[in-house]
Nucleic acid binder design. Structure first.
Lengths: 116, 116
DNA sequence: GAAACTAGTTTCCTTGAAGAAACTCATTAT
DNA sequence: ATAATGAGTTTCTTCAAGGAAACTAGTTTC
């Protein structure tokens, strides 16, 4: 923990990079699911993430793949299925996901204890 | 780490709660700055966060205050200044901010080692 | 009295993110 | 034949997030 202005600016840059990579309404949820389940088919993901449409799911998955956080594998099944899997690199996001989850869970308690 | 579907759904809910609380282009940066600097005036924040406009800064600060992550204190100076300060509760976001920062920093190295 | 400073607010405008619905295409079950 | 399934793509539309610029208001310095 350094307080030099330069180090601070670099830190803010890093934060912005991460946030931008995970931007979009569904990316964190997709990653969160895949970190947890390791691998899922397109339709399984769609069913698992309530409210998401095919277009959005497809788009977000493409962007995650471009950033090497997940892999896309076409499976030779009838009918064809596509398996999405988290990469080892994608798994390095797990601490972030975990912190978001524990903070959110705690926040519920905080709200409850505050609203008498 | 449980894999029951109910626990998984709850976990996803918690993640969404946190993400929503920090939604908006500037909130994480504001929190990041205030976690680091502890307290700042309106204009200091504006100068510290490149690109943000007065309207957005004001709006995001209001929302953060509503969620008790920061406090707003009018100082009796000439001209008046307003001090924004992170609350103890806001400080509990520090692990998230820290993870975002270290992941982003690491991502830079990853990109570098991957290109050529 | 003009200009400058802090801390905003107001108005007006643009653009991109997101959604809904229909469509493709290959295969297979009825 | 027709419906269903998986994995998308395409089109069309809308709404809200965000930005720019001007404005308020109180005080103070030039």
């Amino acid at each position: 923990m350094i307080h030099e202005p330069a180090a601070c600016a670099g830190r803010m840059l890093a934060i912005r990079d991460t946030v931008e990579l995970l931007s979009g309404k569904w990316k964190i949820q997709i990653i969160g699911t895949l970190v947890f389940e390791n691998s899922m088919k397109f339709m399984e993901l769609k069913r698992n993430i309530p409210g998401i449409g095919a277009k959005m799911l497809s788009k977000e998955l493409q962007e995650l793949e471009i950033n090497q956080l997940i892999t896309r594998t076409v499976c030779d099944t009838k009918p064809i299925t596509v398996e999405y899997k988290i990469t080892p690199y994608g798994l390095t996001l797990e601490p972030i996901i975990a912190e978001l989850a524990t903070w959110g869970a705690n926040h519920r308690k905080h709200l409850f204890s505050n609203s008498n």
